[in-house]
Simulated scan of single mutants.
Amino acid sequence: MIAKRLAQAALVVLVATPAVAFEPQNAECIAPANPGGGWDFTCRTVGRILDELDLVDGSVQVTNMTGAVGAVAFANVASKRADDPNLIVATSTVGITQIAQGRYPGDVDTMRWLGMLGADVGTLMVGKDAEYADANALLEAVKADPSSVVVGGSSAIGGWDHLRFLMLAQEAGVPADQLGDIRWVEFSGGGDAVTQMMGGHIDAVLTDIGEIGGFIESGDVKALAVMSDERLPAYPDIATATEQGIPATGYNWRGFYMGGDTSDEAYDGWVEILSDLYESEAWQEAAVSSGLTPIWRGGAEFEEFVRESEARTRDISKAIGVID
Rank of each mutant, 00 (worst) to 15 (best):
S154E: 10
N86R: 03
V142L: 11
V60D: 00
W113T: 02
G152A: 09
D145L: 11
G118P: 00
P85S: 07
Q61Y: 08
E140R: 13
T45L: 08
W113Y: 14
G102R: 05
L55C: 10
A156T: 11
T110N: 05
A78D: 11
I157F: 07
G158D: 03
S155W: 03
N86G: 02
Q101A: 07
L53G: 02
V126Q: 05
C43Y: 00
A141W: 06
A119F: 03
K80S: 12
I49E: 07
G58I: 09
L87A: 06
G102I: 03
A68R: 13
A73R: 00
Q98A: 12
H162M: 04
V108L: 12
R112W: 05
G70H: 03
T45V: 15
A68I: 07
Q101F: 06
Q98F: 09
I99N: 03
N136V: 12
I157K: 10
D134E: 04
A135T: 07
A133F: 03
V89Q: 01
T45R: 09
D109N: 14
V69T: 15
T97R: 15
D120Q: 15
V149K: 04
G102S: 04
T91N: 14
D51A: 09
W160E: 14
T63K: 13
F74P: 05
G95E: 06
V94S: 13
S79T: 15
A78W: 07
A119V: 12
S148T: 06
T91M: 11
S92N: 05
A141K: 10
L117D: 06
T66D: 08
T45H: 01
T66P: 04
